[in-house]
Design a protein around this nucleic acid. Structure first.
Length: 405
RNA sequence: GGUGGGGUACCGAAGUGGUCAACCGGGGCAGACUGUAAAUCUGUUGGCUAUGCCUUCGGACGUUCGAAUCGUCCCCCCACCA
């Protein structure tokens, strides 16, 4: 494939690129020397679940692999102890070695849903970070200035808002950059919030007399709420190991305007497709629900196969469009001691079925008209009800239980 | 080390002796509507079968008929100056 063609693929969807000329040169040199580029990508093992936000980066890595390049996937078991200050995350609790290893294992499993394992080198950065002596660290810190670190936007903002910035956070980019030195990265990719860290990698490589990595950033995918970036701690994520029904349902719940981002960033659909579809939508030729269904099925299918995705779609239509009962629902055996004269208080029933956290919450749900038992709506929060085995309790749109006495 | 400002429910943030289970916003949940768990609007958001009772406003003791609010001690956080 022509170099320019490769460049086009690589830079598609990219936000920052340092720099195009440099990357072209690297591609040319790699071809001449008949060796793959080493494309670095780092992941923090503090949260073991890969979600669609990560998939944006993984997709890009896969494109590199399909062009014959090698992905150096770094598991930041050492940096994980610091916590990435990007996007002003809170201080994270330190992980035990066992946790890190567990997380790292599930990470690899999940990552290879997208990456090609034959073209991936997995490394733990404790390999070279743990042996560092304090003296080595001093040498490392001498290579970068305070002003350079403080120039970073996150830090600026936090300091202006009187949010704390710890010294160790200042060191984070340094460690990440040191990784680049140690693995001889030719290219590093990350989200746009990683730009600073990635550039520090270049600085350090230069300071160590090595070739500087090219840097490429990708957009941050918004989470289900449509505003903030997808992250596990915000709870607005879709994990790649979630069951098909949950995955499909979550995707159907994103705001309509967000669909395009998911089409482009998760499914790598071309921007031109977005434009033509937006026009068709405006003209009334396409229905947003159908488009979102396509999105949800395609994404679910990417991780679970088309068949499972189609089944999830059918189930979703049954439950939410036609308001029918779901095919599967949890079976709940009710404790006999809750019954008096063969009846049970409705709030206690809901709690026993696991559909509310407390009697008070259950009462509120009843008052709001969210509760059905069999084909009957229950509106009196003080009602005592009879329950026959096989009877179905519904709480809200999504809460179901098949009851057993 | 010095000075100042803080710690309130999931988050942010009011409240500075009783009318406070605690305004308001975000988030969550529910209902209506619908095109979907979109959008919009409305309600709700400590616990207890409950016109009341219990637990909660960094912690511990106090003062008071009564404390998130006052006092003492302690813990923690932030900024500025050194």
């Amino acid at each position: 494939m022509e170099i320019d063609q490769q460049l086009d693929i690589i830079t598609d969807r990219a936000v920052d690129l340092v720099s195009r000329d440099e990357l072209r040169r690297k591609l040319e040199q790699a071809r001449a020397a008949n060796r793959p580029l080493r494309v670095k990508y780092g992941a923090d093992p503090s949260a073991p679940d890969i979600h669609l936000g990560h998939v944006v980066g993984l997709n890009k890595l896969r494109e590199f692999q399909d062009l014959g390049h090698l992905v150096v996937f770094i598991i930041g078991d050492f940096t994980g102890m610091i916590g990435d200050p990007s996007g002003r995350s809170d201080t994270r609790p330190p992980l035990t070695r066992a946790q890190v290893q567990d997380n790292a294992r599930s990470y690899q499993e999940q990552v290879f849903k997208i990456l090609d394992p034959r073209r991936t080198e997995v490394r733990f950065n404790s390999e070279w970070c743990a042996p560092l002596k304090f003296e080595d660290i001093l040498r490392l810190t001498a290579k970068i200035t305070v002003a350079r670190m403080l120039a970073r936007e996150d830090f600026q903002k936090r300091m202006q808002a009187n949010f704390p910035v710890s010294l160790v956070e200042l060191l984070y980019p340094l460690v990440q950059g040191y990784d680049s030195v140690m693995v001889d990265a030719d290219v590093e990719i990350g989200g746009t919030d990683q730009l600073f860290n990635l550039l520090v990698g270049r600085d350090l490589q230069k300071a160590f007399g090595k070739e500087q990595q090219s840097v490429l950033t990708l957009p941050l995918l918004e989470g289900l709420d449509g505003n903030r970036k997808m992250s596990k701690s915000l709870g607005n994520y879709v994990g790649v190991t979630e069951p098909p029904d949950a995955m499909y349902g979550k995707l159907m719940s994103i705001p309509d305007e967000l669909m395009w981002r998911y089409f482009e960033l998760v499914l790598c659909r071309p921007a031109s497709e977005t434009v033509s579809r937006q026009q068709a939508l405006a003209a009334g030729k396409l229905h947003p629900r159908d488009l979102k269904d396509e999105l949800a099925q395609a994404v679910t299918g990417k991780f679970h196969g088309a068949e499972a995705a189609a089944a999830a779609a059918v189930e979703f239509k049954r439950v939410f469009a036609e308001h029918q009962l779901p095919k599967d629902m949890p079976e709940v055996v009710l404790p006999a001691d809750q019954f008096k004269d063969n009846r049970i208080w409705v709030a206690a029933l809901i709690v026993a079925a696991g559909l509310a956290e407390s009697n008070a919450a259950a009462r509120r749900l009843v008052q709001q008209g969210a509760v059905r038992l069999g084909d009957q709506k229950i509106t009196d929060p003080r009602a005592d009800v009879e329950v026959a085995t096989g009877c179905i309790l519904q709480v809200g749109k999504r809460g179901f239980a098949r009851l057993t006495r």
